[in-house]
């Protein structure tokens, strides 16, 4: 029985590994290929052409990566500031009309943002929000904010009030209580919410495209013409960069938050 268990475990692990890792192999080959004809499993010739193009100064890759990350992080920061007070009461208090607020907050998770953006596109133009990074940031708040609130609610609901009350009795100010009691406890929720917020913001194509009007070039916008029928090698290279950027952004955020707060937690709790 034990050996069967072992075997099953190994089998399932390997299958999952294959399912997750294998799709990346042709992507990798394709980005380095020089004329990859059917039925070659591995290209007969390799070339750095696609990567040279992608990293050439004029292709705008770095600017796009920077713009994408900038927007994602600013959006996430705004979300955090907006969501903290809301999650505070939604996670810990009962009040009238709460279900309505919750409904409002969760709705954008399933109703896609482009519906709202298309609806108010003309107003966006009139308010001067199109063709600007500001406008794109504003538009990205719609699909990302709900995830942040959601994640923080879960953290707040496990926090309760007693820790803060204890801190108060020991003479901690409101700010101190927030920094040393609330924040460390919320950290996993913040990391989760920020991860989702960053990811969702990085993946936006249509909303960025509509509001940014070509003046705000994020990576998905540069990538799209190449993967929808353009040059497959360059499309693959961009796709790899896109995936890498998402992973990097999450790693960076995780690292920074944990690094910064990890220290305080160990000292004070």
């Amino acid at each position: 029985m034990r050996r069967i268990g072992h075997f099953m475990h190994a089998a399932v692990t390997i299958i999952l590994l294959i399912a997750i890792a294998i799709p990346f192999i042709p992507l990798f080959f394709s980005s380095f290929s020089h004329g990859w004809r059917w039925p070659e499993v591995i290209p007969h010739a390799f070339s750095l052409r696609a990567w040279v193009y992608v990293f050439s100064g004029n292709s705008g890759t770095w600017e796009a990566v920077w713009t994408s990350l900038e927007i994602a992080f600013i959006v996430t920061l705004i979300n955090l500031l907006l969501a903290l007070p809301a999650a505070n009461v939604l996670g810990r208090l009962r009040f009238r009309g709460k279900w309505l607020i919750e409904g409002l907050i969760y709705a954008p998770i399933i109703i896609p943002a482009f519906i709202s953006v298309m609806g108010m596109y003309i107003s966006f133009i009139r308010l001067g929000l199109t063709d600007s990074v500001t406008g794109v940031i504003v538009a990205h708040i719609i699909p990302t904010l709900p995830y942040m609130v959601r994640a923080l609610i879960v953290s707040y609901s496990t926090l309760g009030f007693q820790w803060e009350e204890q801190g108060q009795m020991l003479g901690a100010s409101g700010f101190q209580r927030f920094c040393y009691i609330v924040m460390p406890h919320l950290m996993p929720g913040i990391v989760a919410g920020a991860s989702l917020s960053i990811l969702v913001s990085l993946s936006q194509y249509l909303v960025t495209f509509l509001v940014g009007g070509g003046q705000v070039m994020t990576l998905p916008l540069i990538l799209f013409p190449f993967i929808s029928g353009g040059d497959p090698a360059i499309g693959s290279a961009y796709t790899l960069i896109f995936a890498g950027m998402a992973a990097f952004a999450l790693f960076l955020m995780d690292f920074l938050l944990k690094r910064y707060y990890g220290k305080k937690v160990t000292v004070h709790l």
Partner: peptide
């Protein structure tokens, strides 16, 4: 924007 040669 999907043609390398045009972009170049």
């Amino acid at each position: 924007g999907g043609s390398e040669s045009t972009n170049n």
